[in-house]
Design a protein around this nucleic acid. Structure first.
Lengths: 156, 156
DNA sequence: ATGGGTAGGTTGACAGGTCAACTAAAAAGG
DNA sequence: CCTTTTTAGTTGACCTGTCAACCTACCCAT
């Protein structure tokens, strides 16, 4: 393979979407590894725990979490089941609407949340510190615009 | 759920990595849909076809593609098998190194490449046009720094 | 009240992707 | 040479996430 050919091939990689996918895949893998090592849970599980734990109340409606996080029904269901099997979360039928579940952290779930949140926050901050304030703002705004553009063109 | 609680929950979503994951997921879904509609292939298949097609030579070493694209061995193997089943790609054992495969596009594979590349390029350009030049540069540079930070901290 | 529509949740099936075990071929090093 | 190590590729197991089918509970209309 000649230099020029390799150049041509590499050029494809500069497509914005490729870059994005690669970066995201790496960040994701890093988060998964970190969570597995420090908390023994996967990313979906952490997201659920974090959302329950960050709520002011002790219980949270499952439907709210799904809606806010854009979580898939099926994935959510299985994730919660796993968390219950691990004794981290409890679920109870809501009294007013018997379709809904009220989720709560158990003691060990709360402990896991308290011990893991700083780790994850630190990771976020370390990542964000790789960028200065302007760059961070630019990055976030760029992502916003991309997302908008994607939605706009998605069903065109 | 009170306003403040919803605020707390939503705040988690502003974590840079969440934003990135969401944007990437959307872009990915969009690309998958587009490829399925216009070419009847999936994203992995397109990546392979694009890489073969963009090479100056008519044949390309499979190992080079994997290395440059960071493609998983297993995924690559199955992807190529699918492409061969669809009659888009042919594979031949390299004469000098019998471990290696030389991949080439068939006529229909080349046709698919020629007809799909403009579509995908247009998509990239449409996305990039959502950002002005400065923003694009900032976004790419931000992604670079993030990726670097992720690698740096990944095994810490 | 009751029948139709809708929302919450579970489940099965499936696609995309990762990982590890394995085979075969080539390179490295005595 | 012959042994050891490395590299290309295939395959099987597995995980995550998506989609559709389904059930149940609620809501709303008449």
């Amino acid at each position: 393979m000649t230099q020029t050919e390799e150049q041509d091939l590499l050029q494809l990689q500069n497509f914005l979407t490729y870059r994005l996918a690669r970066v995201q895949a790496r960040l994701n893998a890093q988060a998964v590894r970190l969570l597995k090592e420090t908390a023994g849970i996967n990313l979906s599980q952490w997201r659920v725990i974090a959302m329950i734990g960050s709520g002011g109340d002790d219980t949270v409606l499952a439907a709210d979490l799904k809606r806010i996080m854009g979580f898939d029904k099926g994935l959510f269901s299985r994730t919660v089941r796993g968390l219950m099997a691990d004794g981290l979360v409890t679920s109870a039928v809501d009294e007013r609407d018997q379709r809904c579940q009220r989720l709560a952290l158990t003691n060990s779930g709360r402990a896991l949340y308290n011990s893991t949140l700083p780790v994850m926050r630190a990771r976020q901050e370390r990542l964000q510190d790789a960028l200065d304030a302007d760059e961070l703002v630019a990055l976030l705004s760029g992502l916003d615009k991309l997302e908008t553009a994607a939605s706009a063109g998605g069903h065109a």
